[in-house]
Design a protein around this nucleic acid. Sequence first.
DNA 1: GTCTATAGGCTGATAGAC
DNA 2: GTCTATCAGCCTATAGAC
Lengths: 226, 226
Amino acid sequence: MLGTRRKPERRDPQATRRALLEAATRLFAQSGFDGVPIGAVAARAGVNKALISYHFGGKRGLYVAILESGFAAMAERLQAVGPEARDARDELHGLLEAFRRMAHDHPGFPTLFLREVLASGIEPRVVPHVARIVAVTRRLAERGVRERRFRRVDPLLLHFGLVGGLAFFFATEPARRRAASQGRLPFAQPDAKAFVRFVEELTLRGLRPGPPDPSPTRPRRKGARA
Amino acid sequence: MLGTRRKPERRDPQATRRALLEAATRLFAQSGFDGVPIGAVAARAGVNKALISYHFGGKRGLYVAILESGFAAMAERLQAVGPEARDARDELHGLLEAFRRMAHDHPGFPTLFLREVLASGIEPRVVPHVARIVAVTRRLAERGVRERRFRRVDPLLLHFGLVGGLAFFFATEPARRRAASQGRLPFAQPDAKAFVRFVEELTLRGLRPGPPDPSPTRPRRKGARA
DNA sequence: GTCTATAGGCTGATAGAC
DNA sequence: GTCTATCAGCCTATAGAC
């Protein structure tokens, strides 16, 4: 029912807003803020482009609206996992699932997210949400150590490793899908669930407490640290 | 000495090309292709903007030139690691270092790389290089299994986990630096070397052959696989 | 709330002098 | 090879009719 508005007849203004948000999310994700003419958003939403200024106060306003609701939803979903998890391992599983479901429910958000953290001036209004998300991983790391299930690692590094891998995978998924449909993907299309399972297992094993390396002393390159 | 060209006097045309490539790399990385006016590139390079058309045939030509040389350099560096490594563990170490050095020598490339794989139509001329990079991780996974140092995992998933985490970290580094200098970073500035070391250790431990989980049976959520 | 028409700014490219 | 001057095209925003 989205994108089916063709007649100049008046409908529900909320529907107009939603259609614009929907269309803009996909297009901004695909081509970036500067890569999308406002007319393209309007066309995809099936509404007049002047309505963007009317409802969101301009192109930038539309963009920020999308961005903020996306980041807020993400932070909320991730924060909800911890309290319901039995232990750190369970929480890791829950966080990965939450991330995957977010990408599923809001296709385009991961890409938007990545584009935003790539940009110079990250939108000030999303900074608090970013902070909340970072805090989630930090608490996970601390919890794992407290429960003696994880070895002690820098929580921030864990955050970047985890979020980075996931964000990259899901942000590039739409592009892969498009490339694949044109037969221009130089490898097989990886499955999202399989990837998440892989990350979970790798992280769980990788964080397991214990000695660094039980195998015969690993040879080091000449320039390596003592 | 780059960006010091001010006088209309004639200099080395190669210097002009290099200055433009240098300037464009940073600016395109920072703001994306559509976010950078050609005049800004010229200004930063200290060159007249008409020279972009003259030397590269236009804005897009300049962009593709950067992109291709970056991807080619990356693929080459990664491919050079395997033959020199003693074993799969050593190769992993070498790959991570190569990635880090690439990010160091070509600041802006990781960001450019990420922006490109995010976009809808990945530039056809870089596809072969992407394929080469994917092949490197695939061979690493196979080598590790053959040498009985890694458990058997889907090489493509390993590739995404590894490259994704690294690309995310290094691509967002310039933005973090900028945010930090304005006091708008909601967390501490992570160190590149520390991150690479973390990824190496996590991956090495995570790929170690052996049973999934030696700890007391992990409780599973109701919906989980058998 | 929605549409049409238009204004005004900026962008990328090039012709032509040096 | 490099520069100045210029132009056509597209883009966002808005005034005003409905």
